[in-house]
Simulated assay, not measured.
Amino acid sequence: MADNEYAKADVLVSTQWVADNLQRTDKIRIVESNEDVLLYATGHIPNAVHIDWVADLNDSIRRDYLDEDQFAALLSRSGIGNDTTVVFYGDKNNWWATYAFWVFKLFGHEDCRIMNGGRQKWIAEGRELVKDKPSYPAADYKPAARADYKIRAFRDQVLAHVNAGQPLVDVRSPQEFSGELLHMPGSPQEGALRGGHIKGAASVPWSRAVAEDGTFKTADDLRAIYEGEKGLSPDRNVIAYCRIGERSSHTWFVLTYLLGYPNVRNYDGSWTEWGNLVGVPIENPSRTKS
């Protein structure tokens, strides 16, 4: 695999590809998903629908994602059918776009893609933004049963993973990893009682996978980071985690689709769960005793 030859290159589309296909609303749906849930209203790609990571993708009561019926309703009102090509993009280097992508994959939606470079690149190129909200005929969406086990890890599975000496990737900031900070700078504190990281985890901040223009780094550059620096390899089972599973969905996407790792799971319980569990193995370099 050479420089830009990603393992599953067709999962990425360019801003030009999106511009060329904006009118193909019968086959393609552009989806914007941002950390800033108000950003869509200030201007978005023409014909793009908005999927709110809080209101649309998460259950309003339990710490979990929407169920099959809720997912079907969301896609139906967004005009997305089972055979629709869904192209995600958003702010923060597609951080939340990959999160939405990951949730769609929990339900097995077949054709999901990411617009390489996200909002940043679209705007930098001077491309059109509009404020009008599109309306599409309701689709008849029939979701597969949510298959969490394929790409999602739960706490007991993570503990077994740690005890087996399998690789974990902590994608948070170095300060969160070291235990110096309990949460991401600028984000709300979500209640972790302990700082540090899961025992044995490697620190690879999620943003290292992205170039200055918001596009993903080349395959060679990505392998240099994850394999050359951290010793990961495609034949290992890998779990990625962060604070609530959003940043780690970006790393899950990179390892799974760009580098072709077949067994990568996202631990969305992440540090807000692990940092509150009793008796689990934690390493905290900021303290003399963990």
Score class of each variant (00 low, 15 high):
residue 2 A to K: 14
residue 15 T to W: 00
residue 17 W to D: 04
residue 19 A to N: 01
residue 20 D to G: 02
residue 21 N to L: 01
residue 22 L to N: 01
residue 25 T to N: 02
residue 30 I to S: 06
residue 34 N to K: 05
residue 34 N to G: 05
residue 40 Y to E: 09
residue 40 Y to N: 06
residue 42 T to Q: 13
residue 43 G to S: 13
residue 43 G to V: 13
residue 44 H to K: 04
residue 48 A to Q: 06
residue 59 D to C: 09
residue 60 S to V: 10
residue 60 S to P: 08
residue 63 R to L: 13
residue 63 R to W: 02
residue 64 D to A: 15
residue 69 D to H: 08
residue 70 Q to K: 14
residue 72 A to P: 09
residue 72 A to K: 11
residue 74 L to T: 08
residue 78 S to D: 08
residue 81 G to V: 04
residue 84 T to V: 05
residue 88 F to M: 13
residue 89 Y to K: 04
residue 91 D to E: 10
residue 93 N to Y: 10
residue 96 W to H: 12
residue 97 A to H: 07
residue 102 W to G: 01
residue 104 F to E: 04
residue 106 L to V: 01
residue 109 H to K: 04
residue 109 H to Q: 06
residue 116 N to W: 04
residue 118 G to M: 02
residue 119 R to A: 10
residue 125 E to Y: 11
residue 127 R to P: 04
residue 130 V to W: 07
residue 134 P to F: 08
residue 140 D to S: 15
residue 145 A to M: 11
residue 146 R to T: 05
residue 147 A to L: 09
residue 149 Y to E: 15
residue 152 R to P: 01
residue 154 F to K: 13
residue 156 D to G: 00
residue 157 Q to H: 10
residue 160 A to V: 00
residue 161 H to E: 12
residue 162 V to E: 08
residue 165 G to D: 11
residue 167 P to S: 01
residue 171 V to W: 08
residue 174 P to L: 07
residue 175 Q to A: 15
residue 176 E to T: 04
residue 177 F to W: 15
residue 178 S to G: 04
residue 179 G to A: 02
residue 181 L to W: 03
residue 182 L to S: 10
residue 182 L to R: 11
residue 188 P to M: 02
residue 189 Q to P: 11
residue 192 A to Y: 00
residue 194 R to A: 12
residue 202 A to K: 15
residue 203 S to C: 09
residue 206 W to K: 03
residue 207 S to K: 11
residue 208 R to K: 15
residue 213 D to L: 00
residue 214 G to H: 06
residue 214 G to Q: 10
residue 215 T to A: 12
residue 217 K to H: 05
residue 217 K to M: 10
residue 222 L to E: 04
residue 224 A to S: 15
residue 225 I to W: 03
residue 228 G to D: 11
residue 229 E to L: 03
residue 231 G to C: 09
residue 231 G to H: 13
residue 234 P to W: 09
residue 236 R to T: 10
residue 237 N to Y: 03
residue 240 A to S: 14
residue 251 T to I: 07
residue 257 Y to T: 02
residue 258 L to E: 10
residue 262 P to M: 08
residue 281 P to D: 11
residue 285 P to S: 14
residue 290 S to R: 02
residue 290 S to D: 15
